[in-house]
Nucleic acid binder design. Structure first.
Length: 587
RNA sequence: GACCCCGUAGCUCAGUUGGAUAGAGCAUCAGCCUUCUAAGCUGAGGGUCGCAGGUUCGAAUCCUGCCGGGGUCGCCA
């Protein structure tokens, strides 16, 4: 329970007490009552909207009700003052001991501070890039976002499964196979000339050709495609996935499950079975679609086809499940895939997609509702495009020519931490400008270094404090245990209390971020926390009595080190959620 | 034509799920290093929250309609 939960309960108890004593006719609906940190520092420690939310039901004016609630709240010893302000806010001023207790709890809990428990199973699917080449920067954002979201949910107590859907069944992987076969002939000494239009030209397929040559010698040469397609495709996909896994590892992104699309068809047609089940349910039928308006569709052919009744679930049109050649559409396998998630016990699914898939959301949500009989819910998070530039000049990328900036190149150039933090220092559905030159700048303009430096500075203080308090344990939990005994009552400066309030906010922030599926909030919070910490540090320049290390006052120094420990604990925790290192020294 | 996302300070963006006088960085201007890391800090100026209605004690936030930018629209994934 964090401070805000505790005081929300106190406010609700106060209202119940009013009902008990007859000041209110009955106990009103309390769910909308919240306790929040006030925006203005001058408004005390906490504010509640209780009187405004409950006034109507209580038949009182907000301010009149506020007077009653405030009087009730002031009976609590930890509430020093309950003032009524504005339209009926109740601003609470707390005994500073509340914040000191919160700090003590943060230090005691260490890495577990802010952790939640009791969440259900959640499936998070992210990246899911085609296994036809290396990851490029476009994939990067989804990878980092999905990974951080999974971290956040796991920390909040959910049982998270991180999943990657391998699109290894469509026409794309056949093209991959043909491209790889060309490289195979090349590896055997043939001059293949320019790569024909329509095949993948990238030289990342050269090693695949060599591997095939090593494995098969010239056994596949001159054979019809039907004989070599499957083994070449299998080998190429395996090697592409190895490459992708390495790329992801370079970004510190990992998955628990790599789910093969092909596995839904081979060894028992699960796609067909899913369609049959939906058909039995009346959700699939044979019918015709209207030609889409406005879109260029010269080869449009009006034909009867197998359709999913997506319009029953809020989609705009019904969606085809079979191509004209009789094979399944991507959507059909995707339905079976999400059915598999449901069958594996997930009632809560999150998909992370690129912006160009936005038009796909309604039908996928519809499908999840249909295959789960309404028991499962899908949230689709769209990550917007990344505009890559260098010192303000846009870096052009052309997929067709095979000239694109790979994820690996970016990570090698600017570092994993910078990539991850910058990708998360923006709301997922807002476009992102990523400037390779700015991201490696070591300045305030670069929030990565700013936050990491906050952590490093905390450890610098620990190192420098040795002459006053003796050598501190290097191990975080041992040091925390050592500092937990500090007399926190010595921390009474407004700036120190303000920092303690900020730390007390962390558990609430984690909870809200996880619930909203918005890891960027953690990044912004860390920036604010670091900012407040840097400010307090520099305050010591003008006011020496506020420095963390006070030569002739060991007790006060230990108390302030405890505050630093709180800051370091939360920064390290938050950075871990984002998958960013928390260095102890930066030089 | 339809659907989805976005529109907040000169620029890049937050805004605690409907709260009080809308915030931060950059840029501009004025300051702070014999001191625990200046990779830092303090202050100033800067706003019709795209526009117009609506919902209510209260709207940048929710609803409707416009305007502008981006994305998508059967047989790619």
């Amino acid at each position: 329970m964090n401070v805000f939960d505790i005081f929300t309960a106190h406010v609700r108890d106060a209202v119940k007490a009013l009902a008990q004593s007859g000041d209110l006719a009955s106990v009103p609906e309390l769910s909308r009552v919240v306790v929040e940190p006030p925006r203005e520092a001058g408004h005390g420690d906490l504010a509640t909207n209780a009187a405004m939310v409950l006034a109507k039901e209580a038949g009182l004016k907000p301010r009149d009700l506020a007077v009653k609630i405030a009087a009730e709240l002031e009976k609590r010893p930890e509430i020093v003052k309950a003032e009524i302000a504005g339209p009926g806010f109740i601003n609470l001023t707390l005994d500073p001991a509340v914040w000191r207790d919160a700090l003590a709890e943060a230090i005691r809990s260490g890495a577990a501070y802010g952790r939640g428990e009791g969440g259900h199973a959640v499936n998070v699917e992210y990246v899911s890039a085609n296994p036809t080449g290396p990851m490029h920067v476009g994939h990067c954002r989804g990878a980092v976002f999905g990974d951080a979201l999974a971290n956040l949910l796991a920390f909040s107590g959910f049982a998270v499964t991180r999943e990657y859907y391998i699109n290894d069944a469509g026409a794309q992987v056949d093209i991959l196979a043909r491209s790889a076969f060309l490289r195979y002939r090349e590896a055997l000494g043939e001059n293949i000339g320019a790569i024909p239009e329509g095949l993948y030209p990238g030289d990342y397929l050269v090693p695949v050709g060599k591997a095939l040559a090593a494995e098969y010698g010239n056994a596949l040469l001159g054979k019809p495609e039907a004989e070599w397609l499957v083994p070449v495709r299998t080998k190429a996909i395996a090697m592409m996935m190895d490459m992708i896994r390495e790329d992801l590892a370079a970004l510190n992104v990992r998955h628990d499950v790599f789910f093969s699309e092909r596995s839904l068809i081979e060894g028992g047609d699960k796609v067909g079975a899913t369609i049959q089940a939906l058909r039995a349910d009346g959700k699939v039928y044979e019918g015709r679609l209207e030609k889409p308006k406005g879109a260029p569709a010269e080869d449009w052919e009006d034909r009867e086809q197998t359709l999913f009744r997506a319009t029953d679930f809020g989609d705009d049109v019904d969606r085809p499940l079979k191509k004209s050649d009789g094979s399944y559409t991507y959507f059909a396998s995707d339905i079976a895939y999400h059915k598999s998630k449901f069958d594996r016990g997930f009632r809560d699914m999150i998909d992370v997609w690129g912006a160009d898939h936005g038009g796909y959301i309604k039908r996928m949500k519809a499908a999840v509702t249909a295959v789960s009989a309404g028991q499962a819910e899908l949230d689709v998070k769209i990550v917007q495009l990344v505009k890559l530039s260098r010192a303000g000049v846009e870096v052009k990328m052309s997929k067709r020519s095979g000239e694109f900036v790979t994820l690996r190149e970016v990570v090698d150039e600017v570092g994993r931490d910078a990539v991850r933090f910058m990708m998360l220092y923006r709301k997922n559905d807002a476009p992102l400008d990523f400037d390779l030159a700015k991201v490696i700048e070591k300045s305030r303009e670069n929030p990565v270094f700013y936050v990491q430096y906050g952590h490093a500075r905390g450890h610098s203080i620990f190192r420098n404090a040795a002459p006053v308090v003796g050598e501190l344990p290097a191990d975080a939990s041992a040091r925390a245990a050592h500092l937990a005994t500090a007399s926190l009552a010595r921390l009474d400066d407004p700036a120190e209390l303000s920092l303690m309030r900020k730390l007390a906010l962390y558990p609430r922030l984690v909870e809200a971020s996880a619930q909203a599926h918005e890891p960027h909030r953690v990044a912004f919070y860390l920036y604010e926390l670091a900012s407040e910490f840097h400010a307090l540090w520099t305050l010591g320049n003008d006011k020496p009595h506020l420095r963390f290390i006070i030569q002739d006052d060991r007790e006060l120094t230990v108390a302030r080190l405890a505050l630093v420990q709180g800051v370091v604990t939360v920064i390290a925790s938050g950075l871990a959620l984002l998958g960013v290192e928390a260095p102890e020294e930066m030089r």
